[in-house]
């Protein structure tokens, strides 16, 4: 897959979430983008109970409609140093998590979802969607993928120009923190990078909600 950048689009004070999404859809349509289906990324978080011993551990399980056969699991290891252990498995992993419910319990109230519409314009794939946490509206996310390029450092300037053309000053002039923190600017982009970016955004929405 090509380099993907995920941005949170702030909802203006006098507007609702759906109105903001409509506005962005109108702008991307004006650039000549064509609608091509829907998308969904969901995230469920599990934490270990006392039976495991030691400090509680957290596992995030994510699905992305772009990779329908895969399940992404990210285990937060408390460390030291703290790090995240990623795992990509097939659909059976969901059943495995159910079987382990005595060890890892799902925090149902923090289940997050980003869903919305896909658009295509030349080699760009744009997804505009709303984020909900247990069906409460949390914000608007915009995902932009440039499919022919696999090195973020090579196409950041080009993608920035494209994103600023319909998102305006919301787009910073430097690559998003994800690429800098994890030093991913010169590596081949992987589906897991997209998942990590979603998880980062979901985590910040949760933080705002105080969970």
């Amino acid at each position: 897959m090509g380099v993907t950048i995920l941005l949170s689009y702030p909802v203006p004070e006098n507007k609702t979430g759906p109105q903001t999404v409509d506005l962005l859809i109108k702008r991307i349509g004006a650039l000549g983008a064509v609608q091509s289906g829907q998308f969904l990324v969901d995230c469920e978080t599990f934490s270990s109970g006392p039976t495991m011993g030691g400090p509680p551990r957290t596992v995030h399980v994510l699905h992305n409609s772009e990779q329908p056969a895969a399940v992404f699991a990210l285990l937060e290891s408390p460390g030291p140093p703290p790090k995240t252990v990623p795992l990509v498995a097939d659909g059976l992993f969901d059943l495995l998590m159910l079987k382990m419910s005595s060890i890892y319990a799902s925090k149902k109230q923090t289940r997050m979802e980003a869903r919305g519409t896909r658009f295509e314009i030349a080699d760009f794939l744009v997804k505009i969607g709303t984020v909900t946490m247990s069906s409460n509206f949390k914000g608007v996310l915009v995902e932009v993928e440039y499919r022919p390029c696999f090195i973020a450092g090579n196409c950041w300037e080009l993608m920035r120009e494209f994103m600023q053309s319909f998102l305006g000053s919301v787009v910073q002039n430097t690559p998003p923190p994800y690429f800098q923190v994890h030093n991913r600017l010169n590596d081949v982009y992987q589906p897991l990078d997209t998942i990590q970016q979603y998880l980062d955004h979901f985590a910040s929405y949760r933080k705002v909600a105080g969970l």
Partner: peptide, 14 residues
């Protein structure tokens, strides 16, 4: 990474 020699932009018609 190249910009167009004439219009100076990265993209034209995406």
């Amino acid at each position: 990474t190249d910009t167009c020699r004439r219009c100076g932009n990265h993209l034209l018609c995406a």
